[in-house]
Design a protein around this nucleic acid. Structure first.
Length: 481
DNA sequence: AATAGAAACAACCGCAATTTC
DNA sequence: CGAAATTGCGGTTGTTTCTAT
């Protein structure tokens, strides 16, 4: 590319194109190939650093900062081009849960990736998830981070907590005591779906802003499906209880775009009337799950609708009937497929396949939609097995691979997944899924604390909550509403 | 085919930390 | 030791590309 060109000729070419030879007018905007060539040549000759010298020595009319950025983000030879792999995406989510908006640190752990790249990825991802009203962090990531922080908090004089957390995340080396669940009758799904809810300190429910990132609200039906896919694509993905509740109760939802939260029933989210802590709070999805708080945020993360959603999340989700994407990928169905692929392969095709399958049975499904969800809840292990079997039998199903992967992590399950084994695998009693195990423990503790009941009390009038509780307790309530 | 909106990407800006003189 | 220069980081914005209508 540089053949036949001296530095000077390149600069002249750049100058002609950009009309920027004047030293007082450093060029801005997109870099040209000629400029890139100059910079590359300069760095090869002089090495990185001393970026202000680039302008002086090469004649490139770019400020040092701009040169550095260009080199770091685009010209560095060790850069990895192309989209993030599922593994990288997963890692980004984990790192963000742990570090917050520490893009440079995150980039350091993702060889060949730049902080800018990661930042852009995260911001667009956040937008999607927020628009869809989905949690920013997959529950298992919440769990991993919470647990690692807990661990590091409990271990006195830990030399390096950060690296400790990092190691935990990387190695999954959780040391979780074995727990017997023989008396556990409630549906684990709900607690496993919302581990962070379960880890919320009792007195913070309904008033803490620290957990806002778990429940970003406001759905744009148009994007919900892809967002769901995005969300589900995370390995070990389970689903989110709170969002679930909203999806499940179209009756209580007013317009999803109703922004007048003064008219909304604040108590529906366990917030006593008059409590405006959530309204005032600096809800920050960019914060790590715990640990140091970042107060700086992209402006879009403070959107009005978000606040509305927080005051009354139930009104921020669209009517189920009005949202094709939700019909195609109904909440409980989504929950099921999530649950049945706890070792999710992360393949988008799997999600697409499930959506297509659901679409094909849409008419039949919608006929029963008012009761099916609750039935699913109550019978989830059984239906789960059915779905699992279906996926296993269908060798064309992308879920087949996921199911296989799941089976691999479920010793003794083989091709047929009987209920105890399945539940066991969900609960992680095989000691391979410590995450779920931990969720279940948290769930029990949460129930025992009485906090759950307390908060539910604020919304006990709502049939869906009653039903959810019933489902948690393993009762089959097929109340129609 | 035209258009609007969203997503993806690239780059700039301001600030703070670090290094150099 | 302090000021200036440099570097690094995170937030934001502008542009291009893609997609749905």
């Amino acid at each position: 590319m540089l053949n036949g060109h001296s530095d000077l000729s390149l600069v002249e070419e750049v100058g002609r194109r950009g009309n920027m030879r004047e030293s007082c007018h450093l060029k801005k905007g997109p870099w040209t190939q000629a400029e890139d060539a100059i910079l590359v040549k300069y760095v090869k000759k002089h090495g990185e650093g001393n970026w202000n010298a680039v302008q002086k020595h090469s004649g490139l009319s770019r400020c040092g900062k701009s040169c550095r950025l260009r080199w770091a983000n685009h010209l560095r030879p060790d850069l990895k081009k192309g989209m993030f792999t599922p593994a990288e995406e997963r890692r980004i989510v984990e790192l963000h849960a742990k570090l917050g908006n520490k893009w440079a640190q995150m980039a350091a752990e993702l060889p060949g990736r730049t902080d800018n790249e990661i930042k852009n990825f995260w911001n667009t991802r956040i937008k999607r998830l927020q628009r869809a009203g989905l949690p920013i962090y997959p529950p298992d990531v919440c769990l991993q981070v919470n647990f690692s922080q807990e661990e590091s908090h409990n271990v006195a004089s830990m030399p390096n907590q950060d690296s400790f957390s990092s190691n935990l995340l990387q190695s999954d080396a959780f040391e979780i005591p074995h727990v017997e669940f023989e008396n556990l009758e409630f549906n684990q799904q709900y607690f496993s779906c919302s581990p962070e809810l379960l880890n919320i300190p009792p007195n913070t429910i309904g008033s803490s802003h620290d957990y806002g990132h778990m429940f970003p609200m406001a759905c744009s039906p148009k994007h919900l499906q892809e967002s769901v896919s995005n969300f589900i694509s995370m390995p070990n993905q389970l689903t989110d209880f709170v969002c679930q509740e909203n999806y499940d109760d179209p009756c209580k939802a007013s317009s999803p775009y109703d922004s007048d939260f003064s008219t909304n029933d604040q108590s529906s989210f366990g917030i006593p009337p008059g409590t405006d802590a959530l309204i005032r709070s600096n809800f920050s999805p960019s914060e790590p799950l715990s640990g140091p708080m970042n107060v700086e945020l992209p402006s879009y993360q403070y959107s009005d609708y978000q606040q509305d959603s927080w005051v009354n999340p139930s009104v921020s989700l669209p009517l189920v009937e009005s949202v094709d994407s939700l019909i195609l990928s109904p909440p409980m169905k989504r929950a099921k497929s999530d649950i049945f692929t706890p070792q999710n392969s992360g393949l988008l095709e799997e999600i697409v396949y499930e959506s297509q399958k659901l679409k094909s049975s849409k008419d039949d499904y919608s006929h029963h939609s008012s009761t099916l969800m609750l039935d699913d809840v109550a019978n989830f292990p059984q239906k789960g097995c059915e779905l699992e079997s279906e996926a296993c039998c269908d060798s064309n199903s992308p879920a087949h691979s996921a199911a296989s992967a799941f089976s691999e992590h479920t010793p003794g399950s083989g091709s047929s997944l009987d209920e105890p084994q399945f539940v066991e695998s969900i609960l992680g009693c095989n000691n391979k899924n410590e995450t779920s195990n931990r969720m279940a423990i948290s769930g029990l503790e949460f129930l025992r604390s009485g906090q759950f009941g307390h908060d539910i009390g604020c919304v006990r009038d709502k049939p869906v909550v009653t039903d959810v509780i019933a489902a948690l307790l393993g009762e089959d309530t097929s109340s129609d509403y």
